[in-house]
Design a protein around this nucleic acid. Structure first.
Lengths: 123, 123
DNA sequence: GAGATGTGTCAGGAATCTTTGACAGGTCTC
DNA sequence: GAGACCTGTCAAAGATTCCTGACACATCTC
């Protein structure tokens, strides 16, 4: 018997346009996909992960930030026994379905905050 | 009773890393999401679509190309009655599931063709 | 032929994303 | 205090993506 998740029935298959957009653009990057993959093997803290996948800390930091903003990973600042502050990351239990309908529905609710709209708004 | 699709059972939930990457980065863009949405309402040709969603033809052309490369839409060059060549686009019946496992699995099969690899390859 | 419609491509600038190196702050051990 | 870890941020390069304005080619109508 496989693992039992406690959600019953169909999960809400209608994400917001902005949400889906953030998720897709976050996952649409080789490094970030690898980061999620690495995190699947167990939680770690930033520096360790950086060494593990051969990537600069500042870079990793930025990518993790992007993933966290999309709700795909969660980071918690924990204090180790010796008093050092370490930020551990875990993958979040996300699930999305990608189909023409989902895309179409999501497209209708796109805010486009990062557009010229903001400028004209300011006027 | 909902619509009946003629695929039986579970569709292969293990896309290639490169494939998933192309799909996600293609869909992770507001314009391209809107293009898919617009195409869901019916097939059209490039110029008409450009007018419909208020976008330059060259730009639209590029976006459609990206979507087609990812296998999300299909374009066919058809000859109208009056002899004009028009390129009609349809959305493809794609379906992907996005979960940590899928990402992790896909991440393992990333080719990274668009990397420094190509340069060193050329040498 | 001029004009309207369709196709496609190219060059160049604008806007973003990615990446690196340096810096600052913290705790612990020697 | 010096050195080894950890965290975070910033500025400035590099690389991509996005976007626009031409341009070329084709067909049909006036």
């Amino acid at each position: 018997m496989p693992e039992v998740a406690d959600d019953n029935g169909v999960p809400p298959p209608a994400p917001t346009g902005d949400e889906l957009l953030k998720v897709l653009s976050a996952l649409g990057n080789p490094h970030r996909m690898r980061i999620v993959a690495a995190l699947m093997e167990g939680r770690t803290y930033v520096s360790a992960l950086a060494r593990q996948i051969g990537m600069g800390r500042p870079l990793l930091h930025m990518h993790l930030q992007r993933l966290e903003a999309a709700g795909l990973v969660v980071g918690t600042l924990e204090l180790a026994e010796d008093g050092k502050a370490m930020k551990y990351f875990d993958v979040a239990p996300f699930f999305y379905e990608l189909s023409p309908h989902v895309i179409a529905r999501a497209a209708a609710t796109i805010t486009e905050t990062a557009d010229r709209t903001a400028k004209e708004e300011a006027k």
